[in-house]
């Protein structure tokens, strides 16, 4: 196995309780002792139900929140304590695509401005040619650069979000539920786009999702979380064909199968 690009080592994250007029809430152990490696160019799917800690873990990896315990290594460097310039360097190499393309783009900025943001932050060239290349790489046209987010459909907005993530030419992208807010007919477009970009650019991908069906086609490896712990991880074929953990199996069993011949409810009578 090659040297991992991103390595989460025994990561834990606890949220402290909050005081209210009527007592204080309990501390929440969102992530407990999770270790996960992602190799360069590899796609790992982080799967779990709500409250499993998958989103918190991705935020720890992105350094959007700090781990309570454990280390995060990026390309061999401990980034857990990075500040200032070091953190900026990490942000250039590791970018993010958010779930909701409706709230994650500033409605008062043109697409061009949204895309130049990260370029400016890192002092990278941001001439027209760069922007044209960026926007076409996600399947949009250069003339879209002068428009505002509300002029686009959900799928197109998510393309803009992906273009923004690509702007600094990162080595890895973390995508948090990248298609769950999109229409079914658009999901495949966006998943295929992510897969193509990964193949062209040798990107490593961490796709966070609650839907095992969605990540089936794109992931090399799958990691399953439950209640803050990693219950199983392995190559995609093995997880889907022969899950070891009973929780993984129950998740797979619960996914609706788009084939009426295999359902448990009786079929309607035919003539």
């Amino acid at each position: 196995m090659p040297e991992p690009l991103l390595s989460l080592q025994h990561v834990s994250k606890t949220f402290r309780g909050r005081a209210t007029p009527f007592g204080s809430s309990e501390a929440k152990h969102a992530v407990q002792d999770v270790s996960l490696d992602i190799a360069p160019g590899e796609t790992v799917a982080l799967v779990g139900e709500s409250g499993s800690g998958k989103s918190t873990l991705s935020r720890v990896a992105l350094r959007l929140t700090d781990a309570t315990a454990g280390r995060v290594l990026f390309d061999g460097t401990d980034v857990t304590q990075l500040r200032g310039r070091g953190l900026r360097a990490l942000r250039r190499e590791l970018s993010v695509v958010f779930q909701d393309p409706y709230t994650s783009l500033n409605p008062r900025q043109t697409v061009a401005r949204i895309l130049t943001g990260p370029l400016r932050n890192h002092g990278l060239p941001r001439d027209q040619k760069v922007l044209d290349e960026l926007i076409t790489s996600v399947g949009l046209e250069p003339e879209h650069l002068n428009r505002y987010p509300h002029q686009f459909s959900g799928g197109q907005r998510q393309r803009i979000g992906i273009a923004r993530a690509l702007a600094t030419q990162p080595r890895m992208i973390i995508a948090d539920e990248p298609v769950s807010a999109l229409d079914v007919s658009i999901r495949a477009q966006i998943l295929n786009l992510l897969g193509d970009l990964r193949d062209e650019r040798g990107l490593a991908l961490l796709v966070v999702s609650h839907d095992l069906a969605v990540v089936r086609g794109i992931a090399d490896r799958v990691a399953v979380m439950q209640d803050g712990r990693l219950v199983e991880s392995g190559p995609v074929e093995q997880i889907y064909a022969d899950p070891k953990d009973p929780y993984t199996r129950s998740l797979l069993d619960a996914v609706p199968v788009p084939d009426p011949h295999r359902r448990s409810r009786p079929l309607p009578p035919t003539e």
């Binding site: 309780g17 909050r18 005081a19 209210t20 007029p21 009527f22 007592g23 204080s24 809430s25």
Partner: peptide, 15 residues
Amino acid sequence: VDIVQGSIDPRVRRG
């Protein structure tokens, strides 16, 4: 206000 709020809105009552 905080205390009255809690007695009107049950969501505030239990963190």
